[in-house]
Write a protein that binds this DNA or RNA. Structure first.
Lengths: 156, 156
DNA sequence: AACAGCCTCATCCTTTCGGGTGATTTTGCT
DNA sequence: AGCAAAATCACCCGAAAGGATGAGGCTGTT
């Protein structure tokens, strides 16, 4: 009994609604046909009411359909292509420790003076190092040295 | 077509039921109240049609209103070894085309003179461009400019 | 001890770079 | 047509970078 009711409760609910609506219509029919015989208005009301019923029905039936939309959100991956030192190329250049240090600081955009201060040596020393560095790397300017070093994966 | 039927089978089912019920009621009404006129049938048709219209309207109009549940799905972006320009940072710097060109050539380790020859302009012009470039990038030397540009993914 | 390699520093000189200023032309937009 | 931004070029000056050369000190190997 209850099971059957539960199974068809929607149907019963809507049927009841319709019955109620029909009663309303009958009442309206009586009111308008007896008091004022405006058929157009009557039909208009019928149309409006049933259209409303249709809308209500449709909304009721297609209501809680939680459509899930998967939004792909790109995760910002830090551009860290994991620097791997190219030992081979580094060996080929045959740089000294000091020269490599100077190269690394150059790559940070530091001036010779700043590098000198950082390494606690004189400006002239850095000039000597950088000069030899350019010789070994076969470049003419610090910018070229840095570019080549990055290209050869000697520095990150 | 069949898919649409399957999808809205509930609605169709209930609508048919209602229509059937309506017919039954009308028949009952006719039988017991003996009040059947052509007007009633006409009104019934009106009601049915407009209810159908209402349903159709509702489905049509409120279809693109699916209460969507947004599920954010994190997607792994393979660390592309290829250069992806950071347009945001580039826009922030508000560089001109010429300044960007100079910056790119600087990054290749070229001297101002070489850049001037490459772009078919005078050395002084390149100096002006580079000066403004350093201003906008808030750096003091070309090496710093290149380093920062690479760090911000403005140049490869 | 001798030698080689590296690090350090210096001096002299030239080139390059960068800052500052001003001017003219070109171009894009309204 | 007129305005604003961009591009072009010039001149001056000081700072930084780079080339050439020489020299002294330290360290590990032979």
């Amino acid at each position: 009994m209850f099971k059957a009711f539960k199974k068809h409760k929607d149907l019963i609910l809507y049927s009841s609604s319709l019955a109620l609506l029909l009663l309303l219509l009958r009442w309206l029919e009586f009111r308008f046909l007896v008091l004022s015989t405006s058929l157009d208005i009557y039909i208009g009301i019928i149309a409006a009411v049933f259209m409303g019923l249709g809308i209500w029905l449709a909304l009721k039936l297609f209501k809680p359909k939680p459509k899930t939309i998967v939004v792909e959100k790109e995760v910002y991956v830090t551009p860290t292509p994991e620097f791997v030192l190219n030992q081979k190329e580094l060996d080929n250049l045959n740089l000294t420790i000091r020269e490599l240090e100077v190269l690394e600081l150059m790559a940070k955009g530091m001036s010779n003076k700043e590098i000198a201060d950082q390494l606690f040596v004189s400006l002239n020393t850095i000039k000597t190092h950088s000069g030899k560095l350019f010789e070994k790397m076969e470049v003419k300017r610090r910018t070229q040295a840095v570019e080549k070093a990055k290209r050869l994966s000697i520095i990150p």
